[in-house]
Design a binder for these strands. Structure first.
Lengths: 338, 338
DNA sequence: GTGAAAGCGCTAACAA
DNA sequence: TTGTTAGCGCTTTCAC
């Protein structure tokens, strides 16, 4: 009995064809919504499908059409609310276009990153979106900028891969200038590690804003941490407060870090913003809820994700058209922490 | 030239075979690490693979082996830190066993849930882990408890599907008894919506703990919200505080809710824990960082995810062995909010 | 130890 | 409008 059972469960297209008294080609045609099928034939097939509980085997379809309809998303940390929101944006437009998202948490580790990227080469995914450090992106680009992938949030415009992000240099400058305007002269920077290009750009924005105000930045006030979690911010803040001439303001490059900073400050008896002002980055939903509400640089998180997905889809649709890099606007949100 | 190019890019196994001067069967054997290949032959193949940059086409392999090696994870909200951590656990053991995770954010919507679940039927995923409301799980179970899936965190032990979770009834009781021990008599409950069985169980735990202390729970103090985000907690708290005999303690079934509650309390000038005590649920990393640090019921988030993945893998390995339901321990973490 | 060949379930020429 | 058939690239008997 052809196509009646597959591996003991389910039915193949041949089984449906038999039930409907048509050929497999016809079944395939109605399944794929082709127009050149007589209505009555279509109905026959449709009822056969309905009564048999048939479900297309996408493994077979994928092989035949040579696409997986999966979009790979590589992110340093799914747990970070910023990334979570970007991911939502990606997922949204992916689904809109009939793709699903294969989400991979790389922990910013080049090894894991590489092995995930292999999913592209092995045809498990049709394209990829990478949010990992530029250093690992460069490595990817070297071995294969022929593969369809785009950079999101973190990008190096010189690697020749489509990207979407914000102007990190200006955004950091905006944050620092806000602090300056409030009269602060000793401003600390708590930054991601240097593998991120955005960290370098934000540091430059910080330095230049300070210099433009005639302030020589003290290097003890610049701290790089290798994780964006709360605890990292808290201990950085504690360290900062051990100096006799401790900073009166802290700019942290992530809201999670900034929230950690506030927590660390509290532990050593400092009050925000009275003793120390704090500015964060991202504007995650939590920023407005904590005490005091966090002043921060808002990134259009969801749009960042949506745009990345659209750029990728565009590359997929037209392999040789060259897709642009796009910069989205940020904005300073003044609340009570600074 | 057979197998030399596929769709203009890449090489098939036939191409490698040709380069190595062996048959495709032999190439397949070395690729899959079978032992019955002569070392010299193996080397020939390996160099051919290396020099040609060949990558196996997993679309083809998947069709042939009838498995996708993808695990579907359906979660109400990836943005919630609790779920994010559970997801990490799932991803960890999945990868350990050569599977990748297909993460789907259902928004607890039955429609989306169903369409995602279809990925299982269409062979895009080998198994699924569901964290969605029991009501939607029941629907899934009705149409197909033959499909390999397990429930995680949220489960109905009567649907006959493997599950992992905690004892929600006891956990809620523990939270309330802590409040009672601190002298509170007017204790509010801010709960998820009723579609979640865990919400019902926690409510029951709350009610019974109160009754056991001789307190008749006021139903104005029970609020159900349909989202676990901060704002939901904040407005619930605000509502509670409008009563003349406002509660002196609030038990929220999620830390995110509890943090929102604290924020809402602050807005109406109430101090925690002095005016109102707050207990949360989950013990996300943020709980220890806010001001005041949150007293909460800790769930073993990561283990919950890991266990779910293991249960699923077990089901996959042995379809007819019946896999148990497992309950993991929770514990009360006393900090300063109550 | 190695090769020839069948076939996984589907789509898309090509024929009729 | 419909059917026949040739693959997609791989794994796996079954011969040798």
């Amino acid at each position: 009995m052809p196509g009646s059972a597959r591996g003991g469960e389910g039915l193949s297209i041949a089984g449906v064809a038999q039930r409907a008294g048509v050929s497999v080609a016809t079944v395939s045609r109605v399944l794929n919504g082709h127009s050149n099928v007589r209505p009555e034939t279509r109905d026959k097939v449709l009822t056969a499908v309905a009564t048999s509980g048939y479900r297309v085997n996408e493994l077979a379809r994928n092989l035949r059409t040579a696409e997986s309809r999966l979009l790979l998303t590589m992110v340093p940390d799914v747990g970070n609310p910023f990334y979570a929101e970007v991911i939502r944006g990606i997922d949204f437009v992916a689904r809109q276009h009939g793709y699903f998202m294969l989400l991979c948490d790389t922990g910013a580790d080049p090894g894991r990153e590489r092995s995930y990227f292999d999913l592209l080469r092995r045809r498990r995914a049709d394209g990829a979106i990478c949010l990992d450090p530029a250093t690992v992106q460069q490595a990817l680009a070297e071995e294969s900028n022929a593969l369809p992938w785009v950079a999101c949030c973190e990008f190096d415009s010189s690697v020749g891969v489509p990207y979407v992000g914000i102007d990190n240099y200006r955004a950091a400058g905006d944050a620092v200038r806000h602090l300056l305007a409030r009269g602060h002269r000793r401003v600390a920077l708590i930054n991601s590690d240097d593998h991120y290009l955005y960290a370098q750009q934000r540091q430059q924005g910080y330095m230049d804003a300070l210099r433009d105000a005639g302030i020589a930045p003290d290097e003890r006030w610049r701290i790089n941490v290798n994780s964006l979690d709360y605890e990292a911010g808290a201990s950085a803040a504690a360290l900062l407060m051990t100096y006799a001439d401790a900073p009166t303001a802290v700019f942290a490059v992530s809201d999670t870090l900034a929230i950690g900073v506030m927590s660390g400050l509290r532990r050593v008896g400092k009050r925000v913003p009275h003793d120390v002002a704090v500015v964060g980055f991202d504007d995650i939903s939590l920023a407005a809820q904590i005490d005091p509400p966090l002043t921060t640089i808002a990134q259009p998180m969801r749009e960042l994700g949506e745009t990345a997905a659209r750029l990728l889809l565009q590359r997929l649709a037209n392999r040789n058209e060259n897709v642009p890099g796009v910069l989205l606007p940020h904005r300073l949100v003044v609340r009570q922490s600074a």
